[in-house]
């Protein structure tokens, strides 16, 4: 009986939490206010988990679930992604056939710039993610595009993230076109998809840290900071868009294209929500 009582108490707490309010902002270009959205989402989580420091959200579910944190910290002592960073560094420093290299494509030679991605590009009329920029760099130098979800592209991205460790995420929305992309990403985040009819928010806002069988879902605040990620379930490194596809597949929706506009806009919204947090990629997760 004790178990039932505490379970019921847990369920009622969850109800209360989902009813607790944070300021809401618009669903049109005229009314949407990204900065108000970001502050409201932070306030939502701080009210829900008052004991958790804002910065700790960069550590995902381990910020909230003490039971799994110790295990994760142990894993991070001998990081499973170390080899990937080395492999990424080697590729990053290997010149293309034309003699140029990745460093020539990026600001500051590509070092310490992870926090500025993704960004809105007027010339390209789209959101540019780091992985997209890596591939554009290759193509501009006569090399073939890399596959978007894992392998070399994730390793190069991991190396670039590692040079940005501790930098503060700082995604900007410079004009109305960028704002429209942000709004599209926001709409995607809150839209129900797949046969199971779930939005990202169902698990990663509403249902955060509540068990689904033995697993607990993480807060969306801090989601993007540790990518690319070495996932034990994959046994390898993968990009953020690979993870998006996995999530969408879990709710029985056919994944959208990695590095397509939809997922890039979603990344734009999610990264803006994490503005102010530190880059700590690559990371490891269960």
């Amino acid at each position: 009986m004790k178990i039932i009582t505490s379970l019921l108490a847990g369920a009622s707490l969850a109800l209360v939490a989902s009813m607790s309010s944070a300021a809401s902002t618009g669903n049109t270009l005229a009314t949407v206010d990204p900065e108000a959205d970001r502050l409201a989402l932070q306030a939502f989580f701080q009210k829900r988990f008052p004991q958790v420091e804002l910065d700790d959200y960069a550590n995902g579910i381990y910020a909230l679930d003490a039971a799994s944190r110790a295990q994760w910290e142990e894993m991070e002592e001998f990081p499973p992604y170390e080899f990937d960073i080395e492999a990424g560094e080697e590729m990053f420093n290997t010149p293309f056939a034309n003699g140029k290299s990745y460093a020539d494509c990026f600001e500051n030679g590509g070092m310490g710039i992870r926090q500025n991605f993704p960004y809105w590009s007027d010339e390209q009329d789209r959101v540019v993610t780091l992985e997209l920029a890596i591939n554009q760099c290759r193509e501009a130098n006569g090399e073939k595009k890399l596959k978007a979800k894992k392998g070399a592209i994730a390793q190069i991205s991991a190396y670039m993230a590692s040079t940005s460790a501790g930098n503060i995420i700082d995604v900007k929305i410079p004009n109305d076109k960028a704002k429209a992309a942000y709004l599209d990403g926001k709409a995607q985040f809150y839209s129900r998809r797949g046969q199971l009819n779930m939005s990202c928010a169902n698990c990663h806002v509403q249902g955060v840290n509540i068990p689904i069988r033995a697993d607990r879902t993480s807060a969306t605040l801090g989601h993007v900071t540790h990518f690319p990620v070495f996932r034990s379930k994959w046994g390898e490194l993968g990009t953020l868009h690979r993870r998006f596809g996995g999530c969408q597949n879990n709710v029985r929706g056919t994944p959208l294209k990695a590095q397509g506009k939809e997922y890039s806009n979603l990344e734009f919204f999610m990264t803006y929500m994490s503005n102010g947090l530190e880059v700590n990629g690559p990371g490891s997760r269960k």
Binding site: S20, S21, A22, A23, S24, T25, N27, A40, L41, F44, A187, Y190, S191, R192, R193, N197, S199, A201, N202, V205, Q206
Partner: peptide
């Protein structure tokens, strides 16, 4: 139908709305 419904009412999923 889900695409239409989501377009109409995604905003209810935003916390606080």
């Amino acid at each position: 139908r889900q695409a239409q419904r989501s377009a109409e009412d995604w905003v209810i999923m935003v916390p606080g709305s």
